[in-house]
Design a protein around this nucleic acid. Sequence first.
RNA 1: GGCGCUGUACCCAAGCGGUCUAAGGGGAAGGUCUGCAAAACCUUUAUUCGUCGGUUCGAAUCCGACCGGCGCCUCCA
Length: 472
Amino acid sequence: MLSIYNTLTRKKEEFIPISPDEVRMYVCGPTVYDYFHIGNARSFIMADVLRKYLEYKGYNVKYIMNLTDIDDRIIKKSIEEKIEAKLVAEKYTKAFFDDIEKLKVKQADVYPKATDHVQEIVDFIKQLEEKSFAYNVDGNVFYDVSKFHDYGKLSGKKLVELEAGARVDVNEEKKNPLDFALWKKAKEGEPFWESPWGKGRPGWHIECSAMSGKHLGETFDIHAGGNDLIFPHHENEIAQSEAATKKKFVNYWIHFGFLNINNEKMSKSLGNFFTARDILKHYSAESIRLLFSQTHYRGPLEFNDELLDSSQKGLEKFKNLVEKVSPHPVPLPKGEGVSPDFDFQSYYKDFESAMDDDLNTPQAVAVLFDFVRDVNKAIAEKENLPSEFYSNVKEFLSKTAQGVLGIVDLEKSEAQGSSVEKELIELLIGLRNGARKEKNFALSDKIRNELNELGIELKDSKEGTTYKKVKK
RNA sequence: GGCGCUGUACCCAAGCGGUCUAAGGGGAAGGUCUGCAAAACCUUUAUUCGUCGGUUCGAAUCCGACCGGCGCCUCCA
């Protein structure tokens, strides 16, 4: 039984989807005005882990992530770079897909764009206007928060308190400082769409209400995003959608913690950020994902190179095991060999109960490390293990470490390269082993050290010498 | 000012009333194996969970106070 912490109720709740086999899930995607940073990546990755775990459990997941491709920041960027807003959005949309793929994040079923849904958005606003939740002031349309009595239910804020402590800019046009724009009137030179209120563009919050409704229906299971979206973004989405449909918008609200640098939130405005793209130049997706998985998704996550290094180091344990079980040297026929009393089921059970508990990935990772240690022990202790043992090990890692967490890549062969390169390395290994036989260790060590310099590590074992390429 | 989160070893980090003399990763130290390495395995590294009280047969876990840190309340994952 999966339980999930629901921001709306501030409790862990048993997860029960609307339809028994299907989960409908919406995750707030990027505003494509720049490369996304590694803090954004945390949300994308943890949402990916949640999605993959739901699939692991047998649900058919319908996963939608929006792309905000028209907004103030995009317009600002287009002015700075003197190119059309549309081209800014296109450039960073492409970058988004490139980066997300490198991070081994599975594609969403649909990536709806705001600019492709202007009609739906306009219709949505009209509906709100008809129901008196919206008012038009000279081409700007605002949502009237005072009309929505549940306003504040997600963030736990009370309207009066919000008003008292309001730090929002005073906008003469708004009835209430907390009212927010549904439709923004276009200024001179800005991109615009025609609407009943004149030329303009959608506000930010409305696109999610319109697009999630279109792709997932009026009520759906999961809506996820970063902590900072709770207020006002998600609060406003609820206000819009529930005012329009009179139905519950979302059953489970899930929010991810921030990524901290020196105990401070990483953000564009503070300037203390790294783009995911830059981090990926030095670290693998697996390292990043392991680091993220070792902290619970709701808490803050401390981020720096040392931590990335340590997770990269930890990954070696998985890689070495994969290497050990992958091209099993002497594949035994089924049923032969000494069967170790190794209880794979108990590791699946432990992995699942960790994940079932509000996605306790740190605990799940601990189970995987225990598994690796125990498998290594079994291999070291028993001589002839049946081939099923090796395939069971691979299957376990494939389903959990790779399939859900994305911290290993079984397909990635360690010793790749051109065949000539391979043969050259084999040749040198042969020479070195000749030298070793003659106890010419000076020569054998020289060969090993120099290969090492080239990024090729040798390992001697009873079965012979193997090598792997390491990143320099 | 309002709301919320948080303080566990050298670092990161689980744990949410008994199974905790507290997982897991990194680091450090010692050992087994090895010609030497590497990998792997074993052992050690918090009798203690910010501080002080309280509740309880029993608390890292609940309550209170205090001392730190962080976030949201404005665009933000």
